[in-house]
Design a binder for these strands. Structure first.
Lengths: 255, 255
DNA sequence: ACCTGAACACCGTTCAAGT
DNA sequence: ACCTGAACACCGTTCAAGT
């Protein structure tokens, strides 16, 4: 099956596309038949076989399995819709988060792989930078925006979990850089200005950006109290999910 | 090294303790020297070697690697402090979440392993049941409690991510049960009454408990709006993290 | 009846041998 | 110079052979 593609020369693009299709699993990719079975089953050997190629041929286009996974994530994150023009910051962020969720629902393996990456990919950084930019353009302070991004956490990318250890970009050990992020800190700051600004505002109790960045405990409690206080408010209001279904049920009085 | 323990007969307890110590990594367990190197390096073979035993000897005490991981998680979750008596629901939940976070910080591999489990372990169910009970005893409705648990998500266990697919207990396929949760649904309902109540209130748009349970999209948007609305409120207030540091900075006027 | 060595079917990646 | 087969150092688990 698909023997017409056997002769098509391999490219990084083709390798990544095949890997994503394989990880999406049989049937999920749209085509019928014998392609793949989930991220667990994805191996360099099986992917090569899928492409009608000897395993070592893949290493001409990706440095190894880790870079393959980073490339797959980058491709998937690139599917998230751009920000809708002309709306308020809250709706813009909301729509982008929901778009990200729709994308990651199409690729259920992605959250787990994202979490396993040693560093964010370029597409992830671009997306985060863009969301931060939406907050800042809406008038939120760099400080509040920083905590807001932590509180939203993985939700910004469509799922719910912490991303990495929140160290500022360019913080990799001098010896070797993470796959796809091999540029020096200055260049990263130029490319992702909003991330750089937020990172700069992250000089916390330890007084040093380079040593580690954010106060994880503070960020954790910030998000926790946002949730507990919101739940408390709904409780006092006598809120119920049955009645306001379909409307923005948790919106505050002023919203 | 540690040759005094060579003769101690193997037990499930000892296997699990050794596995946790190995996953915690060298130096993290308190002892000096050559024990283990992280969850990535943990294998049945290396664990057996650590215990001075042939690999297959482990299979007398754990059915396989998956059950080993479930047992490790169960042991770790059991370290979470019990609820403090006499305080309001919000503070009790808050303290338990922060205790869970401290525990999982001691075992950084645990969140990833928890996420990889096919079903929650008994200790996880007991903890969730207890937190739900705190909400309910505080007067929150089953409905609001249900959404609150989703919104807090993995934070209840000390980290930030969704837990499984939120299907009610006893929802495993009839053929085989997940490791450690082999009891029928009725028994589970008796053991975790609060979870059972919450699961019962989860009859959503599809009208069936058995078919899947919660409306994931609603739960996702519920938590997202809780966060966005809280951020919006702080923004309008002109909130800054610098000033109120140390006090409960996000608390509402009424709290 | 209990325990265990060898074997099976994998894995990612290296490296030397082929063209 | 390019490509690739065999090999290396692993894995979890089965199973038959030993005691």
């Amino acid at each position: 099956m698909a023997e017409g593609t056997r002769r098509t020369p391999l490219s990084r693009e083709r390798v990544l596309r095949a890997a994503v299709a394989f990880a999406d699993g049989p049937g999920a990719g749209g085509t019928t038949g014998g392609s793949g079975g989930g991220i667990e089953a994805l191996s360099m050997r099986k992917l090569a076989q899928e492409l009608g190629v000897v395993p070592m041929a893949l290493y001409k286009h990706v440095a190894g399995k880790e870079e393959l996974l980073a490339g797959m994530v980058d491709a998937v994150v690139g599917e998230i819709d751009p920000p809708a023009p002309g709306a308020g910051w809250k709706d813009v962020v909301r729509q982008r988060v929901l778009s990200a969720r729709r994308v990651l629902r199409r690729h259920p393996w992605a959250p787990r792989v994202i979490e396993s990456l040693p560093a964010p990919t370029p597409a992830m950084l671009a997306h985060l930078d863009s969301v931060i930019g939406t907050f800042r353009s809406g008038g939120l302070s760099a400080d509040l925006t920083h905590h807001a991004m932590h509180a939203l956490g993985g939700r910004v990318l469509g799922f719910s979990q912490e991303l990495f250890d929140a160290s500022p970009p360019g913080d990799t050990p001098p010896g070797q850089a993470a796959p796809g992020t091999a540029a020096p800190a200055a260049e990263l700051a130029a490319r992702y200005p909003y991330i750089a600004e937020i990172a700069a505002s992250a000089v916390h109790t330890d007084g040093s950006v380079i040593s580690g960045g954010c106060d994880d405990q503070f960020e954790f409690e910030f998000a926790l109290d946002l949730l507990l206080d919101g739940i408390d408010r709904l409780h006092r209001k006598g809120w119920t999910s049955a009645a306001p279904r379909g409307s923005r049920s948790t919106a505050p009085a002023g919203g």
